[in-house]
Design a protein around this nucleic acid. Structure first.
Lengths: 336, 336
DNA sequence: CTGTTAGCGCATTCAG
DNA sequence: CTGAATGCGCTAACAG
C-alpha cells in the first residue's frame, strides 16, 4: 500500500551529491546540465523511485498543464464521446484532461468548478447543465480562468463557445424529409427535450422554424427512457404513421425500441430521425438517420483555442446528415 | 477571461483586519473563531471573491479529498457507467472523483498514473488496460497510494480489487441456454475478446468450462465493430442457426445489428447473449438477454474500501441474468 | 554550468 | 481565542 513518505528532490539531491536546483533542471530539462551530473541525478532518482510532486510544482509555477472538463452526465454517450475526443486532442501537447461529472446537478456542477479552479487548471471546458441556472458557475469560472463552453452555452457570459449549429442541423432534417416523405399523410412530430439547455432550445427552435411553428411537440429530457415514454404517448394518442424528429440519438433509440416492440415497422409505419451521430448509439439497428456533429474537429478547435491564448471567441460547426434505415431513401416516397 | 491574480488569504486577512490564521480557521472551520471576526472574514472573502487555492492546501496537508479514476476508454458505455456510479458514490462524502482516459494505450495509462500520483490523490481506482502489460503501472500506483483495481486486474500486485465473478456469470448463461435451446441443433459459438484483460480471460475460461473446452471461438476486442465483423464471419463460414454467446453487450450489439441487417431473425435464426447489462446499450432493440453487473454496489464497495483504510482486499460480486428478447423464453424450446 | 535562496498559498504548530 | 512563524516541494532569480 502507501509508502511511508515518498522521496523528495532534496533526497535525490543528497544521494546524487548535487543541489536541488540541478535535480530540478535535470528532470524538467529546462536548462543545460553537465552530462556527468545528469547521469548521477537520474540514477539517484531511479534508485529512490522518485516521482515529481506536481502539487509543489503547481504552487510555484502558474501553469499546471491540466485542463478540466465538466460534463452534465457521463452516461450520455454523446458527452463521453466528446470527453474521449478532447482527451485525445490534449494528449499530444502533453496536457492532462481531467473529467468531472456534474451528475445532472447544479450544486455538483458548482462544486466541480470550484474544485478545478482551486486546482489551478490552465483552462476549463464546461458543458453547462442548464441554460440559465448554470450562469453563476460559468461566470465564476470565466472570471478566473480561460473557460470554454461546449455544446451548450449560457447566454451573456464572456467566455468562448464551441458547438454545432443546431438550427442548421434541423434544416438538414427538413430538407431530407421533404424530399422523401409525404408530409400530409405522414406528418412530423417532434420528440425533444425541454428547453433547459441551449441545445434543446435551439433544436426546438429549428424544428418550428423549418417545419412549422405549430409542429406537434413532446418535450422531455435527453434519455432513452423519455424516448420510450414519448413513443407510447404517440401510439396512445393516435399518431399512427407520423414522421418522428427527435432532439438526440439517445431519445430516438428509445422511440425506435418502443415502436418496434409494439409491432410497428420503420420506416414503413413510422420514420425516426436522430441527432448527434456519435458513439455506440449510432450503431443501433435499424441504423439511425441522424445529424452528425463533427466532434473530432470540435475537440481540435478547443485545443487550438486554449493553446493560442486569444480573446474569448465562439465557433459554430456545421453538422451533416447521415442517412440510415429509419427513414426512406431520398426521393423514394414522392417518386414512387 | 483570466483575472490578473486571484485573491489570496493574505488579501482577505488584510481587508478583514485579522491574521491569515484566523482566515484559515474561519473558512475551513477547523477551530472555533469569535463570531464577530468570523463575520468580518466571510464578508471580506465575499468582497474579494476569494476561492481557496487547493494546491496550497494540498501541499501543506497530506490529503487532497480527491480520488483518481483511470479508465481504458470512455466511449465504452460500461466504463462510463462505472465512472458515473463512482462519482455519485464519492459525492456525498465530499470527495472529488477525477476521471482520466487511457485511450487504450499503455503509455497514456502510465501517464495517468504518474499524473494522479503527482497530484497527491488520496486513492487511485484503476481499470487496467492490459492483464500483464499494465503491471508496471499498477505496481507504481500501489507503492505510492491506496490503489483499487476495478473490473479487470493484474495478477500478483498487492492492491485491492473489486469486480464481478465472470465465470459465475457464464455459468448463468449456460444454465439459461441449456434450459431453452437445443444445443445440438443450435450449437453455441463464443464471440469474445482476446485475453488481454482479466475480464476477457475469465469470460473465455467460463465459456470453455461450462459449455465445453472445444466451443468454437472468435476473439476480437470490446467494440461493436468487432461484433459486426464476427457476425459477418459466422455467416460466411456457414454457422447458420448458432447460439451466440458474447463477452460484452457492446459486442452483442454489433452482432445483433449485423444479423438483422442480413435478414436473419432473433431468437428464431440466431440467439445472442450479452454481458454487463449497463447503460444505453442495454436498451437496444430487440432487448438483450445479458448478465448484469451490480455496478452501484461495486461503486459503494470501493468507497467503503477507501474510507476504511484497511489492508488491500478483494471483493467479487455475483452477477445476475437479465432475460431479453434475443433468447427464447425459458423452457420454450425444449418443452415445445 | 552550478549552488544558494526566496517564496508560491496554505494549515499548523507555538506563544501569548 | 488570536497572531506570528514555520515549512510542505518545487522552480526561478541571482550570484558565483
Amino acid at each position: 500500500m502507501a509508502a511511508h513518505r515518498s522521496a523528495t528532490m532534496a533526497d535525490v539531491a543528497r544521494l546524487a551529491g548535487v543541489s536541488v536546483a540541478t535535480v530540478s533542471r535535470t528532470l524538467s530539462g529546462t536548462r543545460a546540465v553537465d552530462p556527468a551530473m545528469q547521469r548521477k541525478v537520474t540514477e539517484a532518482a531511479a534508485e529512490l523511485n522518485y516521482q515529481v510532486n506536481l502539487v509543489g510544482r503547481a504552487l510555484r509555477q502558474t501553469r499546471t498543464s491540466t485542463v478540466g472538463l465538466i460534463v452534465p452526465d457521463l452516461e450520455n454517450p454523446y458527452f463521453s464521446a466528446l470527453a474521449q475526443q478532447l482527451a485525445r486532442a490534449f494528449s499530444a501537447p502533453g496536457i492532462d484532461l481531467l473529467v468531472f461529472s456534474a451528475d445532472g446537478s447544479l450544486e455538483t456542477e458548482a462544486r466541480g468548478v470550484r474544485s478545478f479552479l482551486g486546482r489551478q487548471v490552465d483552462a476549463l471546458v464546461l458543458i453547462p447543465v442548464h441554460e440559465q441556472l448554470s450562469e453563476a458557475s460559468v461566470a465564476i469560472a470565466a472570471a478566473a480562468v480561460h473557460t470554454i463552453q461546449l455544446d451548450r452555452h449560457v447566454p451573456g457570459t464572456a467566455s468562448s463557445y464551441v458547438g454545432v449549429s443546431n438550427r442548421a442541423g434541423m434544416r438538414l432534417v427538413r430538407d431530407h424529409i421533404t424530399e422523401c416523405v409525404d408530409l400530409d399523410a405522414q406528418p412530423v412530430v417532434y420528440v425533444g427535450a425541454a428547453p433547459g439547455s441551449s441545445s434543446a432550445h435551439e433544436r426546438l427552435d429549428g424544428v418550428r422554424r423549418w417545419f412549422s411553428p405549430e409542429v406537434p411537440t413532446l418535450l422531455g429530457d435527453f434519455s432513452a427512457a423519455w424516448g420510450r415514454e414519448a413513443a407510447a404517448r404517440l401510439l396512445a394518442d393516435g399518431w399512427e404513421g407520423a414522421t418522428i424528429v427527435t432532439a438526440a440519438d439517445i431519445i430516438a433509440l428509445g422511440v425506435v425500441s418502443h415502436l418496434l416492440h409494439q409491432g410497428r415497422s420503420i420506416p414503413g409505419d413510422f420514420r425516426v430521425i436522430g441527432f448527434d451521430g456519435v458513439g455506440a448509439v449510432a450503431l443501433a439497428h435499424p441504423s439511425l438517420t441522424t445529424v452528425r456533429q463533427p466532434v473530432e474537429e470540435m475537440a481540435q478547435s478547443i485545443r487550438a483555442l486554449i493553446e493560442s491564448d486569444e480573446e474569448p471567441s465562439s465557433r459554430w460547426f456545421e453538422p451533416e446528415l447521415v442517412l440510415g434505415a429509419t427513414s426512406p431513401a431520398s426521393g423514394s416516397e414522392l417518386s414512387g
